[in-house]
């Protein structure tokens, strides 16, 4: 019985370790500001099939939660602080994101395109 429990734990642990090998490559950074419950820029164009780093700076005096169902990301950004989120590699398309605490105003979109150089378009 104890062996079985150990094997189960070991197999789940091994699975976790197997997934724990992020690619050690340079990651392009994209900066986004949150001010008056609005994202600037609200449209972020990133290259397809590439991991990128979003650095979101909350310039408001209230916290906000960056949330995206299509990107499968959620992160609280405290008042007047920065937060980092890695996204991708993604297929070409449009991926919505919003501020969970102010979903009517704080909205934006990540546009994933095939491109040579990364762009940051407002």
């Amino acid at each position: 019985m104890h062996k079985l429990i150990s094997y189960t734990t070991l197999s789940i642990g091994t699975l976790c370790v197997l997934f724990c090998f992020p690619t050690l490559a340079a990651v392009t950074e994209y900066h986004v500001q949150l001010k008056d419950h609005l994202f600037f820029p609200s449209l972020i164009t990133i290259p397809a099939n590439q991991k990128v780093k979003l650095i979101i700076e909350n310039q408001d005096n209230t916290p906000e939660e960056f949330d995206s169902f299509s990107l499968n990301r959620e992160k609280v950004i405290f008042a007047n602080q920065k937060a980092t989120i890695f996204i991708g590699p993604l297929k070409p398309g449009e991926y919505d994101f919003f501020g969970e605490y102010n979903p009517h105003t704080a909205r934006g979109m990540v546009i994933v395109e095939h491109q040579q150089e990364p762009l940051n378009v407002n």
């Binding site: 997934f19 724990c20 090998f21 992020p22 990651v27 991991k51 780093k53 989120i85 890695f86 991708g88």
Partner: peptide, 10 residues
């Protein structure tokens, strides 16, 4: 995945 501890898949 979002803090880059593991890689994402499709």
């Amino acid at each position: 995945i979002q803090v880059d501890l593991i890689d994402t898949s499709d």
